[in-house]
């Protein structure tokens, strides 16, 4: 093995390590962002949709209806739908618009939401007060 080969092997191992660190480990479970109670008394959270959901974890209070506002800032067809499988919701999100999704009161638990193809993911953490 000459110098260049050693360099390539070392670089490759480092690159693989970095890829796996960046995509699997770097984003440790971020704290969930709590929904705010608006003027109407309904808890509401705005979720930005652009290559993913931010915040990707939203905290809701159990036993109260909630409103999620998806602010889709792209036209990638990947994110054109949001799905909350446990609640039987599939909603189309028009590009560059805010789309409100009203949820009935839920029991405590974690409910996942994803894009239409299940590639982008987020979750609703419903907690008792």
């Amino acid at each position: 093995m000459d110098v260049s080969e050693v360099a390539v092997v070392a670089g490759g191992v480092a690159a693989i390590g970095w890829v796996n660190w960046y995509f699997f480990l770097a984003e440790r479970r971020k704290a969930a962002v709590a929904a705010k109670v608006g003027a109407t008394g309904v808890q509401q959270a705005v979720i930005r949709v652009e290559g993913g959901y931010s915040p990707a974890r939203v905290r809701l209070r159990a036993g109260q209806p909630a409103r999620l506002v998806f602010d889709r800032r792209e036209d990638s067809s990947c994110s054109e739908e949001v799905v909350i499988p446990d609640l039987g919701i599939r909603r189309f999100l028009p590009a560059h618009q805010r789309t409100g999704v009203d949820l009935p009161a839920q029991r405590a638990g974690t409910y996942e939401f994803t894009c239409g193809m299940g590639m982008l993911r987020g979750s609703l953490v419903v907690e008792e007060e």
Binding site: Y22, F23, A26, E27, E50, G51, G52, Y53, S54, A56, E74, S76, C78, M119, L120
Partner: peptide
Amino acid sequence: RHFYTRAWAAFRHHSADMN
């Protein structure tokens, strides 16, 4: 163009897709 902009948007979310 959209392959690159979408890949970058996903990358910032620590996620990766076809793009």
